[in-house]
Simulated scan of single mutants.
Amino acid sequence: MISREKAIKIKALAIDIGNSSTAFGLFEGERLKKRWICDTKKLKKADLKIFKDCKVVVSSVVPSVDKLIKKILSGARFIDPSKFDLLKIKIRNKKEIGADRVVNAYAAKKLYGYPVIVVDFGTATTFDVVSSKGEYIGGSIVSGIRMTCDALSEKTAKLPNITIKPPKKIIGGSTVEAMRSGILYGYVSLVEGMIARLQKEMGVKVKVVATGGYAKLIAQYAKGIDVVDMNLTLKGLSLV
């Protein structure tokens, strides 16, 4: 956390509220000065009160938390994809798309050019596409790697809940090693396959930017990821 005096001095706060975690970024102009993360379910009034004098912009996919933010930070600006005019959005229903996906697409376009694909490894993993015309044209959604791992344990009688980390070998010599191999390399293959299919459909070579909690891990093994930017969403909020 940060002191109220420091927050007031910097005055620009970006908040990215996800299903599992919430990321905070304090900016001085376009420069990220401090970043921290907390569990979304444990977010409290005390975490927010020190920012009441800051300029605040929020991306959220958790409506229940929005109420808390609006109560404490009454002047906070929430990203509304249906009214987002900084990026041309070419999908049928703008109200369906998550604010984080729009912000990611906008940030990637501004910072890395276009066409571009953003892969965000959150609770769900999203693939978002900005076309050669600079338009957001949609993407794909799949369960996140942690969710996939949890489901494997919860839906079976004997498989344990494990930490996600690289196995020593692809051929696992134990149940845990086999699970780690299947989850990591299976997910890597999913990511590589989706990137290849998206690029094939677009008909051009596209830069791929990865972000989200597992971006660094997956990027070590997955072909096709050009850039890892762990602060892409926060940077996008600051640009807005």
Results as ranks from 00 to 15, higher is better:
residue 118 V to G: 03
residue 135 E to I: 05
residue 106 Y to G: 06
residue 145 I to L: 14
residue 150 D to T: 11
residue 112 Y to N: 06
residue 103 V to F: 11
residue 112 Y to M: 04
residue 143 S to I: 11
residue 126 T to L: 06
residue 110 K to T: 04
residue 152 L to N: 14
residue 130 V to D: 00
residue 116 V to Q: 09
residue 132 S to Y: 06
residue 116 V to A: 12
residue 147 M to K: 13
residue 126 T to I: 08
residue 122 G to C: 14
residue 127 F to D: 00
residue 124 A to G: 10
residue 148 T to P: 05
residue 137 I to L: 09
residue 104 N to P: 00
residue 105 A to C: 04
residue 134 G to L: 08
residue 143 S to H: 07
residue 155 K to H: 11
residue 110 K to H: 00
residue 153 S to Y: 14
residue 149 C to M: 10
residue 142 V to P: 02
residue 136 Y to V: 06
residue 155 K to V: 09
residue 151 A to Q: 13
residue 122 G to K: 15
residue 152 L to S: 09
residue 123 T to W: 02
residue 133 K to I: 01
residue 149 C to T: 14
residue 127 F to I: 01
residue 135 E to K: 05
residue 134 G to H: 10
residue 125 T to M: 06
residue 126 T to G: 10
residue 137 I to N: 10
residue 124 A to S: 08
residue 137 I to H: 09
residue 108 A to N: 01
residue 133 K to C: 01
residue 118 V to L: 03
residue 145 I to E: 10
residue 150 D to G: 04
residue 149 C to I: 08
residue 116 V to K: 13
residue 129 V to F: 15
residue 131 S to H: 07
residue 139 G to H: 07
residue 125 T to V: 13
residue 155 K to D: 07
residue 135 E to N: 06
residue 140 S to V: 09
residue 118 V to D: 01
residue 149 C to V: 06
residue 110 K to S: 02
residue 108 A to D: 01
residue 120 D to V: 03
residue 115 P to N: 01
residue 146 R to N: 12
residue 124 A to I: 08
residue 118 V to W: 03
residue 128 D to I: 06
residue 138 G to R: 07
residue 145 I to C: 11
residue 108 A to C: 00
residue 106 Y to F: 11
residue 153 S to F: 15
residue 114 Y to T: 12
residue 140 S to L: 03
residue 112 Y to R: 06
residue 149 C to N: 15
residue 133 K to T: 06
residue 136 Y to P: 00
residue 135 E to R: 07
residue 122 G to E: 10
residue 127 F to H: 05
residue 151 A to F: 12
residue 124 A to D: 05
residue 130 V to R: 04
residue 134 G to T: 09
residue 119 V to L: 04
residue 113 G to H: 01
residue 105 A to V: 07
residue 115 P to C: 03
residue 132 S to H: 11
residue 109 K to W: 00
residue 104 N to M: 04
residue 155 K to P: 05
residue 151 A to R: 14
residue 114 Y to N: 05
residue 131 S to G: 10
residue 107 A to P: 00
residue 113 G to K: 03
residue 139 G to Q: 03
residue 152 L to D: 08
residue 104 N to C: 02
residue 105 A to P: 00
residue 142 V to C: 15
residue 117 I to C: 10
residue 115 P to S: 06
residue 138 G to L: 09
residue 124 A to N: 11
residue 131 S to T: 11
residue 133 K to S: 03
residue 149 C to L: 15
residue 109 K to T: 01
residue 127 F to A: 05
residue 124 A to M: 08
residue 133 K to R: 05
residue 152 L to M: 15
residue 142 V to T: 15
residue 106 Y to D: 10
residue 107 A to Q: 02
residue 116 V to T: 13
residue 110 K to A: 01
residue 137 I to G: 11
residue 122 G to W: 12
residue 108 A to Y: 02
residue 123 T to R: 05
residue 103 V to Q: 08
residue 150 D to P: 04
residue 105 A to H: 08
residue 148 T to Y: 06
